[in-house]
Design a protein around this nucleic acid. Structure first.
Length: 632
RNA sequence: GCCCGGAUAGCUCAGACGGUAGAGCAUUUCCAUGGUAAGGAAAAGGCCACCGGUUCAAGUCCGGUUCCGGGCUCCA
């Protein structure tokens, strides 16, 4: 007689050891059908797991996040099985479940393209029809080595597993090294689809062989797959590269790969963001500066960039002397600090700089405005005393929080600690990391730790924003730096009339203005709030008869400073509305006989429906209020 | 940088087997003077990314280059 505790069911006595599935089935047959796997004493196991005395069991059923992960992981095996059937020489490496799907990395002589997907999917369906089980068995390391003797990747993995006994799973003829668990039956698979194929280095190391990675996704229900595919489609139409082109915001050209061109409508976004940015920074006591783009190599040697950042920098020669195009703004700010003596009374000194930096990025990583080779950082360098730094960091966090709210962003924090390649002593790093931890702790900010990801001169707090494809992007960062002041030997005169070393805080709020514009474009799907919209309203006369009145409305609004257009073309109203909708202009102003007679205008909001005939001055007051409040 | 794929009109895309280019939208003009997401007609618009090769003949086949896309590595 053994006793186990099953969460949601309670303590159960069994007269002999039984599997989880048969135990639950005896109690609730219907419920058992929904089961996918279980967690015994905190470890995920198959439903075939045989219960032991005192086991504490949590059930994983359809609907749980873990269940979907297990399904996807099982699908990776099925896909591998199918690929093995079609490409017998394929060597399999790892095939995990990931967010929204799974992949398998395969060493393959043939190339697979998305055109091969139907063929592979068909083979997968054939396998699923056979309704195999995932048969788990335990083998010794020696047995495992002999089973996978032709697969150097699996052998490498086997050698690294500390356990003496390894688990393998057999599905039909396909055997894979795997800790499991798996779905109890292939009949649980509701729907699946192969999504894409890509290259991936073995173990993510670019020195290793490039493997073929096939991505796919699976769900318990066809409807869930359909919804997922719809979501992907929706993300595609929010893509800032597409919207940027459609709305004439920016462009890229072969003549300057990775260097964005901003069109006049894109500049409206940019200038309005910066206007707001300057307003916030003035209020916070920042002084705006501007430093050169080209600076002597000597400076970059002093700063440590030459040793730590050279591969990402561009260089030029001027009058036989070597110069670098700045990849960061800090040395310039330091030169300004050094151009004068400073007293403790002046601190903190906060230099803000919208600095254009250039960084050489590998060609394969360029990605619209998200990843470019030149960008404008909304940078600032705070020079302060050690006593002031906590307060200053807290102020920066609050500033970032305030500014992100205006755009309606969610974000999370990460603390990046000392990287292998760095300047400054371990004591300095300890101190700096502790200060950042303390400030986040005091402010009750949850954060993750990103081990070894700090800048070469100091640890940092990073703010990550989520975009429409659920990718996260680093925007704001706060970096604490004891090293650079040392290198540049900067100082202030203290209360005691002797010289002291200030601490430097590097920080950006929006990060890169270019990237930020990309992010908000996706965030709003191009439907910018009125304060940002490149065109805020468009006047649409119903016919030529009302041209004069329409033009008078247009010029009144223009005079008020709004970004306004008029569509005077000889086209139907429906067509003009459609085109304005496609251009995502927030307000359409329809002018016809009624409006002319009563001296009013009719407002049509982009969202449709909501139409009203009002007086021009009321509209002006409304829209001014909306702009002032930066209404979302 | 690496793997796979792509590049045809301003935009979105068609173009079997090689025989020198086609649609829709946008643009211009004309007709219709219109009431809330495409009124009708016509015109104009192309070094088919670039360089080379095969061929009587290349948008199409083969090399190479550039750029773009999906990933990997890296990153604001």
């Amino acid at each position: 007689m053994i006793e186990v505790n099953i969460k949601g069911i309670g303590k159960i006595k069994l007269d002999k050891e039984k599997s989880i599935f048969s135990t639950v089935k005896r109690i609730d047959k219907k419920f058992a059908k929904k089961l996918i796997a279980a967690k015994v004493n905190g470890r995920e196991v198959d439903l075939s797991y045989v219960l032991k005395e005192n086991d504490s069991v949590g059930l994983i059923k359809i609907g749980d996040k873990e269940a979907l992960d297990i399904l996807n992981h099982s699908m990776a095996h099925i896909m591998a099985y199918a690929i093995k059937n079609l490409y017998p020489e394929a060597k399999f490496t790892i095939g995990p479940a990931i967010e929204d799907g799974f992949y398998y990395d395969i060493d393959l002589e043939d190339t697979i393209s998305s055109e091969d997907f139907p063929k592979i999917e068909k083979e997968m369906k054939k396998i699923i029809k056979k309704n195999y089980n995932f048969e788990r068995s335990l083998v010794s390391k020696e047995e495992a080595r002999s089973i996978f003797k032709d697969n150097p990747y699996k052998l490498e993995l086997i050698d690294e597993i500390p356990d003496k006994v390894l688990s393998i799973y057999k599905t039909g003829e396909f055997i894979d090294l795997c800790s499991g668990p798996h779905i109890p039956s292939l009949s649980k698979i509701g729907a699946f689809k192969l999504l894409s194929v890509a290259g991936a280095y073995w173990r993510g190391d670019e020195k290793n062989k490039m493997l073929t990675r096939v991505y796919g996704t699976a769900f318990f229900d066809q409807k869930d797959l359909d919804n997922y595919l719809k979501r992907i489609e929706k993300a595609k139409i929010s893509d800032h590269r597409k919207i940027g082109k459609d709305l004439d915001l920016f462009s890229f050209h072969d003549e300057a790969p990775g260097f964005p061109f901003f069109h006049s409508k894109g500049m409206v976004l940019r200038n309005n963001i910066l206007k707001y940015w300057r307003q916030e920074h003035r209020a916070e006591g920042y002084q705006e500066i501007k430093t050169p783009i080209i600076l002597s190599n000597e400076l970059w040697k002093t700063s440590g960039h030459w040793d730590n950042y050279k591969d990402n920098m561009y260089f030029v020669k001027i009058d036989e002397k070597d110069f670098a195009i700045k990849p960061m703004n800090c040395p310039g700010a330091i030169l300004i600090y050094k151009s004068d003596q400073h007293s403790y009374r002046e601190l903190p000194i906060k230099y803000a700089e919208l600095g254009l930096v250039h960084r050489h990025e590998k060609s394969g990583v360029l990605h619209g405005l998200f990843r470019v080779r030149n960008f404008t950082q909304d940078d600032a360098h705070v020079f302060c005393t050690e006593e002031q730094m906590e307060e200053e960091i807290a102020k920066i966090i609050n500033l970032i929080d305030r500014m992100y709210k205006v755009f309606g962003f969610e974000y999370h924090l990460e603390l990046s600690t000392r990287p292998p390649k760095r300047i400054g002593s371990d004591e300095i790093w300890d101190r700096a990391e502790n200060v950042l931890k303390k400030v986040m702790g005091d402010g009750n900010f949850a954060y993750e730790i990103n081990e070894g990801d700090g800048a070469f001169y100091g640890p940092k707090i990073d703010f990550h924003i989520k975009d429409c494809l659920d990718r996260t992007w680093q925007c704001a960062t706060i970096q604490l730096d004891f090293a650079m002041p040392e290198k540049f030997d900067i100082e202030y005169v203290g209360e005691d009339n002797s010289k002291h070393r200030p601490v430097m805080i590097h920080r950006v709020v929006l990060g890169s203005i270019e990237r930020f514009i990309g992010i908000i474009t996706e965030h709003y799907s191009g439907n910018f709030p009125v304060w940002l919209a490149p065109v805020q309203a468009i006047v649409l006369p119903i016919s030529e008869k009302f041209k004069t009145y329409a033009e008078s409305i247009y010029s009144s609004l223009k005079k008020e400073g709004f970004r306004i257009e008029i569509d005077n073309r000889v086209e139907s109203l429906s067509k003009k509305i459609r085109l304005s909708e496609l251009r995502k202009i927030p307000y359409m102003i329809v002018i016809g006989k009624n409006e002319q007679n009563t001296g009013t205008i009719t407002i049509r909001k982009k969202t449709g429906g909501d139409m009203k005939e009002i007086k021009l001055e009321n509209f002006i007051a409304d829209i001014k209020k909306e702009i002032k409040e930066k209404k979302l």
